[in-house]
């Protein structure tokens, strides 16, 4: 969408509806708050239940108690006795961080490349990749396992990370957001004599930081919660991730829900921290970053 076409759209919109300032503005504002509050309440409730559950005994949780309890220490002790927490969180952390960094680097390069340097062949490849995105993972698990087994990489973090880093999903995302990247910036940089990789690193990357922020959250979360592949490829208990461990705890004959909810709260924290740290990026405009 070019600037000129945008202005004509605006002109058309203006012509179509030359109405004075909406007298219902206040009512509408109130309505927005009510709806957002409602959505916030519905969204927070299960999270609240999870946090409160971590302070209750298993029996109380089953009875549906939803107020703060006094079993937090008991649950924490039980969790840390039963789960080698430092090791398990370290595993999850290393996998998620390394995978996120590599995914962002490789996939954003590709997304940029597909959009900025279009050619018929690459368009075909891109269309093909989109199709591949839809193959259910279960269909590819056995051959992938064969490959990693032959490479003697079974039960390593590399086996968990490597298949995820070239993410079609994230390539697609970067390609779509790159459409909003002003080509004038690139042209200006070229005139200044910057090389293509410099343009990517010093012009594109800072400008697109809200996109990178969103992608970081999404990719980190996906890797942190990744289940089926790590389940199959990580075999010894000391190499497992927190997501796998929690799933195993839930499947016990007599699950200790206090312990499990304490674990799930801990397991949720990293994603939330990353969201808190990055959410400011959603407020800053792209063009502000360039100025």
């Amino acid at each position: 969408m070019t600037v000129s076409s945008m202005t004509t759209t605006v002109d058309r919109a203006v012509a179509q509806s030359r109405v004075p300032a909406n007298p219902w503005g206040l009512v509408r504002r109130a309505l927005v708050y009510v709806l957002l509050s409602l959505a916030a309440f519905v969204s927070i409730f299960p999270f609240y239940w999870m946090v409160v559950g971590a302070t209750n005994t298993s029996a109380d949780i089953i009875k549906g108690k939803s107020s703060l309890g006094s079993a937090l220490i008991t649950n924490a002790t039980a969790f840390f006795t039963q789960v080698d927490a430092v090791r398990i969180f370290w595993n999850s952390g290393v996998i998620a961080v390394v995978a996120t960094v590599l995914t962002l680097a490789i996939s954003s390069l590709a997304g940029y490349g597909f959009e900025m340097f279009r050619s018929r062949v690459r368009e075909r490849i891109f269309g093909f990749l989109l199709l591949l995105l839809s193959i259910p993972f279960a269909a590819m698990m056995v051959p992938l396992f064969v490959m990693f087994s032959q490479a003697k990489l079974v039960n390593t973090f590399a086996a968990v990370i490597l298949p995820t880093v070239a993410s079609i999903f994230i390539i697609f995302y970067f390609r779509q957001t790159t459409k909003a990247f002003p080509t004038e910036l690139r042209d200006a940089a070229r005139i200044d004599g910057l090389k293509e990789w410099q343009i990517f690193l010093y012009v594109y990357l800072p400008v697109m930081r809200s996109t990178y922020a969103a992608a970081t959250i999404i990719v980190f979360m996906a890797n942190w919660n990744n289940y089926l592949w790590p389940l199959v490829v990580l075999q010894t208990a000391e190499n497992k991730t927190i997501t796998l461990i929690l799933s195993g705890l839930t499947a016990a004959y007599t699950p200790d829900y206090g312990l499990i909810l304490f674990g799930t709260v801990l397991a949720t924290l990293p994603t939330l921290v990353i969201f808190f740290l990055l959410q400011r990026r959603f407020v800053e405009g792209m063009l502000g970053a360039v100025k």
Binding site: L109, Y112, G113, F117, A139, A166, E196
Partner: peptide, 28 residues
């Protein structure tokens, strides 16, 4: 030159995808 640059940008992703997807897809 631009065409080659385009390939360079997408090459790492394509190599990895080729490595980890082609065989599983053909297999399935």
């Amino acid at each position: 030159r631009e065409n080659i640059t385009g390939w360079v940008f997408i090459a790492p992703a394509l190599i990895l995808l080729g490595l980890f997807m082609i065989y599983p897809i053909v297999w399935s």
